[in-house]
Nucleic acid binder design. Structure first.
Length: 288
DNA sequence: CAGTGGCCCTGTCTGC
DNA sequence: TGCAGACAGGGCCACT
């Protein structure tokens, strides 16, 4: 479940592995992987051949590779997507969908870029680049680790909404990078139930919430991300170690690390939320 | 217009 | 043993 920390770890791996290299050719073996490239797989391939990767950038959970053509190879990992930099002669992964070979492919030990995705929620496409982001991503808010993130605008935007705080944290147009794991972790640290109404949060509480989000994202990056299974690995195939630091997510029934009360699990938006019943009491039903 | 819910996918696990 | 169903869930879009 790649969220900001996992995507950032992948970005760093790609920066080391493919920045500055020139694409020799591309093979799409599963058309669904490029379904968001509306002009089709052939057009996708044609726009990449011969282009040099200038950099590797990220906003929220999106990655993009600016090219020397003024376009950008853009990708989202969805739930199970992987971008791997592996030896060009290594065996194909089970769910290998796209391969990018580089112009140094004839050199011994040459590595290529592979997009592997079991659940096919992720995908790649080529779009016009832009500053600070491709227009395609203009609706994605900055993430809390972005130096240009506007804390005051976040606090105001959060309190202006009329919804639950977890929904707001997951809304990538308000703040990007958080998914179910890090939203639950942020709420646990902030001692807030996810259904607390956003418009009733005080400014200091909203600011503390943001601080906790920043902390958990930063710590998770340092740990290499969270890997529950083999579905998330870095570009070099390494699993992250943050799972052992999780306080809420995936800890249903186990004692809260703060107060010992068993962590609860509740249905939420066709998925689930984990929280401490004592540290994070449900809001009173009566409101307004 | 903001908020909400459905849908897309496949592998793994659980229950009957 | 086998099969059906639940579950994992980010982003987009339709609907209210």
């Amino acid at each position: 479940m790649p969220e900001l920390p996992e995507v950032e770890v992948v970005r760093r791996g790609l920066e080391r592995g493919v920045a500055g290299r020139t694409i020799a050719g591309v093979t799409v073996t599963h058309p669904r992987a490029v379904r968001r490239h509306l002009a089709g797989a052939d057009d996708f391939t044609a726009r990449l051949a011969g282009r040099t990767v200038a950099a590797v950038r990220r906003r929220g959970k999106y990655l993009w590779l600016p090219l020397d053509s003024g376009e950008a190879l853009t990708g989202h990992l969805g739930m199970s997507g992987q971008l791997l930099v592996v030896p060009a002669d290594s065996p194909a992964q089970k769910h290998l969908h796209v391969r990018l070979r580089f112009t140094d492919a004839d050199r011994p030990g040459a590595r290529e870029l592979r997009f592997v995705d079991q659940r096919t929620f992720g995908g790649l496409l080529v779009v016009p680049d832009g500053d600070p982001v491709p227009p395609l991503l203009a609706h994605i808010a900055r993430d809390p680790l972005d130096p240009a993130f506007d804390d005051d605008a976040f606090v105001a935007g959060l309190r202006r909404r009329r919804t639950g705080v977890k929904r707001a944290l997951l809304d990538q147009t308000l703040v990007s990078g958080l998914g179910n794991i890090y939203a639950d972790e942020t709420l646990w640290r902030a001692r807030l139930h996810g259904e607390r109404p956003t418009d009733l949060l005080t400014r200091p509480a909203a600011r503390r919430l943001l601080g906790h989000a920043r902390d958990v994202l930063t710590e998770a990056i340092a740990a290499g991300g969270t890997s529950f299974d083999a579905l998330y690995v870095s570009a070099d195939g390494v699993s992250g170690l943050f799972e052992r630091s999780l306080d809420a997510y995936g800890r249903e029934g186990r004692p809260c690390r703060r107060c010992g009360t068993p962590v609860r699990r509740e249905a939420f938006m066709n998925r689930s939320s984990a929280s401490c019943p004592r540290c994070q009491p449900r809001p009173r039903p009566a409101r307004r």
